[in-house]
């Protein structure tokens, strides 16, 4: 269930990550802080540029919409005030999406968004750009057949098999369990939305009130994305410091 990740596969970019989950495969690359064009320069903070490239063909309004969502989300995550008058460039290339994605009944931008958010965070971690916190995202889908049991991070096939979709949401949470992104579609009541939110929170965030020391132990077998992120970073640190124990 946890996404497969490879950090820093591209050696010419400052930070990069490949991410594969449920048939969605994305490469992210970050360059920065680099020199910014005069017209884009902000006097007291860094400019963030996000490019989303689709698996097939050239970008369309869908990609532009995703870029806007990502830019505003990541601006609140990156400590842009630490890098004034610089540019942080993030490119997300979608490598493949499952064949069922187009016909599963949920907007293609909703099914792709959580993967893009997770990939961009991994690329930013790999580029060592100062961040305020982390962010993890998940998709929650409620089919009409079983409205009480929302599907969390389903594969496109699972959505297709569930039949008609009543409503779908993408939630992203930062390291302090604060919601930073909420994109919804379909018709739903406030209670249904709240239920979806709670389900997504369980998947994204580690159990509340866990101190730093205790969080170390949950890595490896943990189910939530926060624990998975810690495991990824632990592997990165291990790789960087293997010379200390190497022969």
């Amino acid at each position: 269930m946890a996404p497969e990740v490879l950090l820093s596969p591209l050696h010419r970019a400052d930070g990069s990550a490949t991410y594969t989950q449920n048939g969605y495969s994305i490469i992210g690359a970050v360059n920065g802080p680099i020199e910014v064009l005069r017209k884009d320069e902000l006097p007291s903070e860094a400019t963030l540029e996000v490019h989303v490239r689709p698996a097939v063909g050239v970008g369309s309004p869908k990609e532009r919409h995703l870029e806007t969502l990502l830019t505003s989300t990541l601006r609140s995550i990156i400590l842009t005030h630490h890098l004034p008058r610089t540019l942080i460039q993030l490119t997300l290339q979608v490598r493949s999406i499952p064949a069922e994605d187009a016909i599963c009944g949920v907007s293609a931008y909703l099914t792709l968004l959580p993967h893009l958010i997770n990939t961009s965070l991994l690329s930013l971690l790999s580029s060592s750009i100062p961040l305020r916190t982390t962010v993890t995202a998940a998709l929650v889908v409620s089919p009409t057949s079983s409205p009480t049991m929302p599907l969390v991070m389903p594969t496109a096939q699972e959505i297709l098999r569930a039949g008609r979709i009543k409503h779908a949401h993408v939630f992203a949470f930062d390291g302090e369990r604060k919601m930073v992104v909420c994109e919804s579609e379909g018709s739903f009541t406030f209670e249904e939305w709240e239920e979806a939110w709670e389900v997504a929170e369980d998947v994204c965030c580690r159990d509340g009130g866990v101190g730093l020391g205790e969080a170390m132990q949950v890595d490896g077998q943990s189910e939530n994305l926060e624990g998975w992120l810690r495991e990824v970073v632990r592997r990165k640190v291990e790789g960087e410091q293997r010379w200390k124990s190497g022969t």
Partner: peptide
């Protein structure tokens, strides 16, 4: 090097005991 490396994610608060 300490036996267990403390892995940090952005946003993690450093406990006083680790300082």
């Amino acid at each position: 090097m300490a036996s267990t490396t403390q892995v940090l994610l952005p946003g993690d608060t450093i406990p006083t005991s680790a300082l």
